[in-house]
Amino acid sequence: MQIFVKTLTGKTITLEVEPSDTIENVKAKIQDKEGIPPDQQRLIFAGKQLEDGRTLSDYNIQKESTLHLVLR
């Protein structure tokens, strides 16, 4: 499924993921596309910060959901 990741600069990254993918996994995909190390990434969905060990389905993230990427 496709999800979108919006950065603070207003750029939107499109990722191909599975509901069973972990947040860690998603961060690795963002690193592949954008070169941002996962340890600098914070992903936010519905106002919650997403934890590395959880999966997209844990957070009920469905196709075409938009996550927000904050760098630390």
Rank of each mutant, 00 (worst) to 15 (best):
Y59K: 01
T55A: 08
R54V: 11
T66P: 03
D21T: 15
L8E: 15
D32S: 13
F45E: 02
T9I: 11
G47E: 13
E18V: 11
R42S: 11
D32A: 13
K29P: 00
K63N: 05
L50N: 00
Q40W: 06
G47R: 10
K33Q: 12
L71C: 03
K11Q: 14
T9Q: 15
L67G: 01
A46G: 11
I36N: 10
I44G: 07
I44Y: 13
K48D: 11
D52G: 07
Q62A: 14
K33C: 02
V5R: 00
H68W: 06
K63L: 14
L69S: 02
S57W: 13
M1D: 05
P38I: 10
I23M: 11
S65Q: 13
Q41G: 07
V70E: 11
Q41K: 02
K11V: 07
T12A: 07
L8K: 10
R72K: 15
Q41S: 07
E24D: 04
L43V: 04
E16Q: 11
D32F: 13
Q49F: 14
T22G: 04
M1V: 07
D52F: 15
I3K: 00
V70C: 02
L67V: 09
R42E: 15
Q49W: 12
P38T: 09
D58V: 07
L69I: 04
E64W: 04
F45S: 03
L43H: 01
A46K: 06
S57I: 08
P19V: 14
E51R: 04
L69N: 01
K33E: 15
S20C: 02
P19A: 12
T12W: 06
F45K: 04
T9G: 10
P37T: 11
Q49M: 08
S57R: 08
K29N: 10
D39W: 04
K29E: 09
E51D: 13
N60Y: 11
S65F: 10
E16W: 09
K6V: 12
T12L: 13
Q2P: 05
K29A: 09
D21F: 10
N25G: 05
T7Y: 04
V5S: 01
K48M: 13
P19Y: 12
T22E: 11
E34V: 13
A46S: 08
V26Y: 00
N25I: 15
T55P: 05
L8R: 07
L71Y: 08
P37R: 06
P19F: 14
N25F: 12
K6R: 12
I13D: 01
G35S: 07
K6E: 14
Q31H: 12
A46L: 12
T14G: 11
I13H: 11
R42T: 15
E64M: 06
I30G: 01
K11P: 12
L50F: 02
G35T: 08
Q31E: 08
K11S: 06
N60A: 13
E64A: 08
E16S: 07
K27R: 10
T66G: 03
T55M: 03
Q49I: 06
R54G: 13
K27E: 01
T14N: 06
M1K: 03
E34T: 09
T14I: 13
L50G: 01
L43E: 00
N60K: 04
T14K: 13
I23N: 01
P37Y: 12
I3V: 13
L43K: 00
M1L: 08
T7A: 04
Q40G: 14
L71W: 04
L43I: 11
